[in-house]
């Protein structure tokens, strides 16, 4: 039992049995969320600090609720309201937080590799809540948990990830995770948003959307990152919606019981049609609930600091 690393910076190097362990523990955690009294004393006296250098609603709230349901103390800082805005480096901010006694630091940062850097700097466990376009492991874990809960397995499923793969850390973590668990990962989107070499991660790349959707068991629709779209990577939102937006007709190409996922926040009418987002195949709201359960499992497992570090930390 237990994870081998003290941190979770990405899924690239997490073995299948550890992913399974996290998903297994998320099930009893979900039962706690459904109770009238959503509180267990497990992490009493532990401190979880969320450090967000980028905007977020669901991820930060999800981590904070997960920590609170387990009775940990939580506090959060965002770039705009902290010394980060005075130019303090991420390392110094982290050392300050660690010196105050944080057990787990949840970090979101625009730079790929930021979580890794922090993990090497402080003794506390670091969870990557998104670093640039690199990884967002807890999102992929909740995606896997949600699919496994609905389908009973991950092995052999066809997972189509549609949209802006280039800028998506969710896509990268999903590719590593689903591929490791034996699913077939398909990617489709505008050619300009498909990073070269992504096949090496174990995914199949389609430039034809219809082919990627054919018989898919899961369609994971990525957000068009409006804040990153003024570089002329595709002609416009209307054009994108026409060519790659998932609507009722396109959904019919997938397996009849295909699940529709979206990591949020959604641009309704752009990458996803409202009738698909709110349709019976959509499990988008469940992803959000499951996110809390999966993060509870992560916090629980990481408070032991990882077996490799038992002696040093």
């Amino acid at each position: 039992m237990g994870l081998s690393e003290k941190d979770l910076v990405g899924l690239q190097h997490v073995p299948a049995e550890e992913i399974n362990q996290i998903l297994d523990i998320a099930t009893p955690m979900k039962e706690i969320i459904k109770r009238q009294i959503r509180k267990v004393p497990t992490l009493r006296g532990r401190t979880v600090v969320t450090v967000f250098y980028e905007a977020s609603t669901r991820t930060r709230v999800s981590f904070e609720l997960a920590a609170k349901y387990l009775s940990a103390d939580t506090t959060g800082i965002t770039a705009a309201t902290s010394s980060m805005s005075k130019g303090e480096s991420i390392r110094d901010t982290a050392r300050t937080i660690a010196a105050m006694g944080a057990d787990i630091v949840v970090l979101r940062h625009p730079m790929a590799g930021a979580a890794e850097l922090l993990a090497h700097t402080i003794k506390a466990s670091v969870i990557n809540a998104g670093d640039g376009a690199h990884e967002h492991p807890s999102q992929a874990l909740l995606d896997m948990f949600t699919v496994k809960e609905k389908k009973g397995r991950l092995k052999g499923l066809r997972i189509a990830i549609i949209g802006d793969i280039l800028h998506s850390r969710v896509a990268r973590s999903d590719i590593w995770g689903f591929h490791r668990m034996g699913a077939e990962v398909r990617l489709a989107g505008p050619a300009t948003l498909l990073p070269p070499g992504v096949e090496k991660m174990g995914a199949r790349v389609y430039t034809n959307l219809e082919e990627a959707l054919e018989g898919a068991d899961v369609i994971n629709i990525l957000r068009i990152q409006l804040e990153r779209q003024n570089r002329g990577l595709f002609p416009g939102l209307r054009e994108y919606s026409r060519l790659f937006g998932i609507n009722k007709e396109r959904l019919k190409l997938a397996a009849p019981d295909a699940l529709v996922m979206h990591p949020g926040p959604m641009n309704r009418g752009v990458e996803i049609a409202p009738e698909v987002a709110d349709g019976i195949q959509s499990i988008i709201n469940e992803q959000v609930t499951n996110g809390v359960a999966v993060r509870m499992a992560l916090l629980y497992l990481l408070t032991r600091g990882g077996s490799k570090h038992e002696i040093t930390c």
Binding site: G2, P28, T42, L301
Partner: peptide
Amino acid sequence: LDITLYRDDLATLARQPLVRSTE
């Protein structure tokens, strides 16, 4: 009942024990 999350010795164990469902 699974009592893992309520144990008083979690902080002293080398590894976190498996949590199973309470039903």
